[in-house]
Design a protein around this nucleic acid. Sequence first.
RNA 1: GGGCGGUUAGCUCAGCGGUAGAGCACUACGUUGACAUCGUAGUGGCCACUGGUUCGAUCCCAGUACCGCCCACCA
Length: 965
Amino acid sequence: MPMEKNFDAKTAEARISAMWQDRKVGAAGANARAGANGEKPETFSVMIPPPNVNGSLHVGHAFNNTMQDILVRWHRMLGHDTLWQIGTDHAGIALQLAVEKELAATGSTSRRDMGREAFLGYAWGYKERTSDHILSQLKRLGITADWDRVAFTMAGAPGDTRKGHENSPNFHDAVIKVFVDMYNKGLIYRGKRLVNWDPHFETAISDLEVENIEVAGHMWHFKYRLAGGETYEYVEKDEDGAVILRETRDYISIATTRPETMLGDGAVAVNPSDARYGAIVGKMVHLPLCDRLIPIIADEYPDPTFGSGAVKITGAHDFNDYQVAKRADLPMYRLMDTRGAMRADGAPYEVCVARAREIAAGSPTTIEEVDSLNLVPEKYRGMDRFAARLAVIEDINAIGLCVSTLMTEIDPETGSEHLTREPLVEAKKIMQPFGDRSKVVIEPMLTDQWFVDTAKIVEPALEAVRSGATKIMPESGEKTYFHWLENIEPWCISRQLWWGHQIPVWYDDAGKIYCAATKAEAQAQAGGRSLTRDPDVLDTWFSSGLWPIGTLGWPDQTDELAKYFPTSTLITGADIIFFWVARMMMMQLAVVDQVPFRTVYLHGLVRDAKGKKMSKSLGNVIDPLDIIDEFGADALRFANAAMASLGGTLKLDTARIAGYRNFGTKLWNACRFAEMNGVWEGHTTRATPPDATATANIWILGETAKTLAEVNAALDAYRFDNAADALYKFVWGKVCDWYVEFAKPLFDGPDADETRKVMAWVLDQSMILLHPIMPFITEELWATTGQRAKLLVHTDWPEFNLDLVNPAADHEMNWATGLIEEIRSARTQMHVPVGLKLDMIAVSMTQTAREAWARNEVLIKRLARIDTLRDGAAPKGAISLAVEGASFAIPLEGVIDIAEEKVRLSKSMDKLTKEIGGLKGRLNNPNFATSAPEEVVEEVRVNLIAREEEAAKLRTALARLSEME
RNA sequence: GGGCGGUUAGCUCAGCGGUAGAGCACUACGUUGACAUCGUAGUGGCCACUGGUUCGAUCCCAGUACCGCCCACCA
């Protein structure tokens, strides 16, 4: 049965993928070979960055998983006991968003109407669907993870259907155990803190989930009048100390980009060094629109050179103000509800403000009481924060408390100045925080949350990278890692969501905390008191932070944990170094006191061909399945490998993928040619190369050895691009372009048998070496050619070495191919018809050249389309060729254009002259000879001699041409 | 504001002390015993700019410009 011209990726991939799964290729230790003395096989383990179950995989996942699969296949073929742990992440907030969108799109009842339990049931169903799809996408990519070990970060949580992750360890129990242990060790605490609040999801989020985006905003200036009608002398000076403004004021001017928060101000702060306000520090000002007074306090925070130098302090709604308020022990009045609207709860304003006045006057209070006071005047209650902003501005302006300022205008024609008074509203670019998922403006909000006291667990994570116990690649990643961890903030881990691990904490009526793995245990602690469970769930990253040990069955001391942990390599996007990598480091070290991985490889973001971020709104999202449908998985994988240089962004260009699809076809057809010539007949797959006597055969064996060495070195250094490049150049540039062509005449000669053996071996090695990158086509070729004892995926990685390289054969092949290229080039430029066979005259030839010619005559003649070679002088009307040790002439009287030949030779001559000039220049520089290393000087000398020899031959040829004119 | 990275052929990128490489694109030719998803031969580059170190710099150092990315509390 003859081979088809092309590899049929569509049908073959599905068949091969199914076969790999049937034979449990990915199962831990599938190829594990013990060493010579029966010792334990070396292990190699990687953890997939678990894809979020909120959607489908994009090209970034394909890229990431290709690299993992290349490493895993490589190590498996090396005989290492290999584990690729696969699974998915429940993706807390992201999944909740996806489910809400689906509910909205299908017109179902909303989350709130459904209630927590029904919503969770729906979410589990959603997860089953997306998880199935994601895993099937990964299978189509050809990855050989251990499919019996699909883990899930919420496995074992209440409501778990177990569908899609039947064998996952109970991740929920592990997460809960870690929480309880950390709580008991004082590493997790609860507190009322200012956190980033997402008004859409109505939950706290961590700092990392906030994106600061520059938007066009405004800054308003308001007057806060001094209490009791007091006044003071306001003096403003310029940089040189000259007075530029002096006036009596009864107010202090404050600036704000968020006017609505003034309703919750606790003070106005000025810098203690600010001479303008020294006289009024400690005095009270009247808060506009509100029926209360607040003090002017001194604090280092305000910058006297910015704005008016006075800052309103709203402790409950601004991170800076929060710090000031804490320092000054100011009450922090929360103004908004969970949806970001001005509070409508609590007692009437009159009642609240009366109590606030008492508190300000020193009446004892509690955080809870302050939080219960609603200091939003009735007029604004229930208004959205943005509507309230406009209302506040309008109302302050109406009572004349918007600052007007002196503005200078210069008449461009007369040059005269005149003063105007304008209400001051500055247009100002402001950095506004947005939720990375919800895309709504984040509100700093004073709420009760759970925190990991990261400062207490950060040090081992820093030390592990400092000491090299874990290596981060590229190295710049380590700097990023250090910078973040050295400035780490407490990690807010509680989320007011439904989808996630519910926090294992119960409260009694007095609010006392009982943290325990189960309610029964909590109840045991609480005695007869009735308990209520904390409704919050954990940040999704808290559980994915435990991915390495959780997937291996911790806290049980499983065999896998003993064998595969710490894992070998983590391959993940540089964008989640803080979210995930740093937290895994901290968590694993805190829980099991070991680093989670030896090496971290960080890669960039995959973008489209133009370098644009792929996004749904731009419509430039590429679905990896579409690419696989069009070009095959191997082409996508090869493109991924070839793009994977360390660092930077990666642009995915379909033209490039098409090129690698073509590469697969090229390999396929080379094998087809070999098959047609029966090279695999009676062939047994062999580890050692066959003996070779023909130069071309000796040469290609050496090239194969070089390629193996390059691929090994590249993969060892995580240079997937170099590995792909070496293989591409070898298979296309060496095997197909030259060796297959050489083999054609060799098959007709005395070396036919040897050539068949060599070709079979070389192509076998090509399949093996390419297999980690292009597994499908190579597996198919492996099955199509020869008798194979094992699947290619189970075949041993070769061990032959560079002894196979024969420098003499290399040199001779380079000479022969160089000569062929010279002849072909001359023929083309002289417009010699392709089909015309030519005779060639050896004008001069050294003994070495004669021997080289003799050994490769049949190859050269065929590839250069030369009929005969004889000795003699160059006749009139011939093309001249000069190569090492020989000069040739090809008589073409009547065929060639003398002028054109002259141009051709002159062009070569120019190039040579320039080169010789450079070489001579260097040699003639006395400093070069004395300072440069000897071998460099020698190289230049040898080079110069060779070039001058060539030049001499060319000169002769040119002179002859001139005679003919 | 701080940090990190980039600037090499028309495009996408390698190279990183010895006078430049690949793929794609482009041009010409081509049904040569596998391959037109191909072959052969070509075209195309003051390696961003300015200094410095060196016998020698695309490569090392300093500065400039432009472009990215990350982090950050200027009200």
